[in-house]
Computed example of a mutant assay.
Amino acid sequence: MKKIFLGALALMFLSVVSCKQAADKAEEAADKAEEVVEKAEEKVEEVAEKVESAVEGVPSFSDPAVQEYVNAYEEYMAEYTKIVESKDMTAFAGLSTKGQELAQKAQDISGKLSGEDAQKWTDYMTASSKKMQELAAKMTQQ
């Protein structure tokens, strides 16, 4: 009878220890999952901040023609940047016609702006001009 009682007692002891270990492992897994979620949230915030800062430089205008110009100019800037980075002088020369067309459109558009759009336009073109100067400097340094 003693053996049965001691066996049952040992079995209960092992069950308690086993449950305690399982609870500890579950708690450990929950802590790790929480860390992963926190890191993922931080990464999402970083990406959101980068997207926001990229978009901040491109204002939206009430006049559809102005917005269309700005979108075309952003495409031009992206292409210009790509060409500067690739050091492709042939492609750079081919881009001059597009730049001249955009310059002409800019003159036409700037005369039609009023109020808030005029200020946005000035700020946008000033920032864009600075970017172009930086890119041109990169091109001449090569």
Rank of each mutant, 00 (worst) to 15 (best):
K82F: 09
V47G: 07
F92G: 00
V17F: 07
E85Y: 03
M77E: 02
A137R: 11
Y124V: 15
L102K: 00
A91N: 13
P64A: 11
M132P: 03
V84Q: 11
S110P: 07
V47C: 08
K2T: 12
D88W: 15
L102I: 05
T122A: 15
M12P: 00
A127Y: 00
D117K: 05
V51N: 12
Q67E: 10
A127Q: 05
I109M: 03
K2M: 14
T81S: 13
E42H: 01
A54K: 13
K25S: 00
V44F: 08
M1R: 04
V36W: 02
G7E: 02
E46P: 06
V58K: 10
A127V: 06
Y69A: 01
V17A: 02
Y76H: 09
E52K: 14
V70P: 00
A48W: 04
V66M: 11
I83V: 13
V17L: 12
M77F: 03
A72G: 14
N71W: 03
S18T: 10
D108F: 04
S114E: 11
K131E: 13
K25T: 03
K105M: 05
I4R: 05
E56V: 12
Q119H: 09
Q107A: 06
Y124N: 08
S86M: 07
T90W: 13
A54P: 05
E35Q: 12
E52S: 15
F92A: 04
G115R: 01
A10L: 06
A93W: 10
E74Y: 07
Q107H: 07
E34T: 10
I109E: 01
A22N: 04
E34N: 05
V44R: 12
K32I: 10
E74H: 07
E52Q: 15
E41R: 10
A33H: 08
G111F: 02
E34A: 12
E42S: 05
A136H: 01
T81H: 08
M139S: 07
Y69E: 02
A8G: 09
E79H: 08
S96H: 04
K130Y: 11
Q133H: 12
T97V: 15
E116D: 14
T140E: 03
V17I: 11
E34C: 04
T97S: 10
S15Y: 06
Y80P: 00
I109N: 01
A78R: 13
V44C: 10
W121F: 14
S60L: 15
V17R: 05
E85Q: 08
F61L: 14
A40K: 06
S60W: 11
D63Y: 02
V17S: 05
G94M: 08
K131A: 13
Q21W: 07
E56S: 14
A8C: 15
M132F: 04
A40F: 06
V66N: 05
A65D: 10
G111T: 09
F13C: 01
G7Y: 02
E101D: 08
D31M: 09
W121V: 14
M139F: 09
D88Q: 14
Q104H: 06
K98T: 07
D63N: 14
M12I: 04
M12V: 05
A23L: 06
Q141N: 04
V17M: 07
A93S: 14
T140I: 04
V70R: 01
L11C: 04
Q107W: 06
Y80W: 11
I109Q: 03
A65V: 09
A8S: 14
E38G: 03
K98P: 00
A103F: 00
